[in-house]
């Protein structure tokens, strides 16, 4: 009841805030592109080293680290002015808060990726993969959803602890490894060989399953993560 309107209100509030200050997006985009340049220097052993088999790894490591930056910001502002209390005082289901925060983080990640992926393709991918765009986007969305839902749950916890942004990577990185494995493999196969839906189906199903499991897990535990 009214959950959808509240969901929209929270997402809109976060978007307005971010598009006005741009402090998170600008940093994340700069970080992502810088990371690619760093990867280029780090992995190029000799003139014209073939980095094709590293592409999936580079891309997802970059996104996951960029998201860590964003997740810390996403709750810092709620915490700083005690806005979280204001939010919790509202007659809103806690799961709605979780879903809205996840959706907001997903939008930010997609914005970053919209900038980063073309630059990445320009830097590292020689063959045109426009024909494989659809499977790539499916993998991207499925992996993003897992990263954002799990990240939002853990950021909610870490913001209430003493070490805040120091804690989040330690909690988040070991848990996100399955997504990293599946998404990296799928992305590399797409970039390197143009593998289509057929042989990626297992990985996509796996990512879908991961998303489902952690949405349910967050559903069941978010009340505890955000309350008290």
């Amino acid at each position: 009841m009214g959950g959808w309107a509240q969901f929209k209100a929270i997402v809109r509030k976060d978007l307005i805030r971010e598009l006005r200050t741009r402090d998170m997006l600008v940093s994340m985009i700069l970080f992502v592109i810088l990371a690619m340049i760093i990867f280029h220097y780090a992995f190029t052993v000799e003139e014209g080293s073939d980095l094709t088999w590293f592409t999936g790894g580079m891309l997802w490591v970059t996104f996951i680290f960029a998201m860590l930056l964003g997740l810390n910001r996403s709750f810092a502002q709620e915490k700083d002015e005690r806005c979280l209390d204001g939010l919790l005082l509202c007659p809103v289901d806690r799961v709605t808060i979780f879903l809205a925060k996840t959706a907001g983080n997903l939008v930010f990640l997609l914005i970053i990726q919209a900038v980063a992926v073309p630059v990445f393709a320009l830097f590292f991918i020689e063959r045109s993969f426009l024909g494989d765009l659809l499977p790539f986007l499916v993998v991207l969305l499925l992996a993003d959803l897992g990263i954002c839902s799990l990240g939002t749950l853990l950021a909610t916890i870490s913001m209430n602890t003493r070490s805040r942004d120091l804690l989040l990577p330690i909690l988040f990185l070991p848990l996100i490894v399955p997504v990293l494995i599946a998404a990296t493999g799928a992305t590399t196969l797409i970039f390197a060989e143009g593998t289509g839906f057929g042989s990626l189906a297992m990985r996509m199903l796996f990512l879908l399953g991961f998303d489902a499991v952690f949405l349910v897990a967050a559903w069941g535990t978010y009340d505890f993560a955000i309350g008290e």
Binding site: K13, I16, R17, R20, T21, D80, E81, R82, D85, G86
Partner: peptide, 10 residues
């Protein structure tokens, strides 16, 4: 409360 609970960037 003495905390305004307002979003400073809005």
């Amino acid at each position: 409360s003495h905390n305004a609970m307002l979003y400073p960037d809005l």
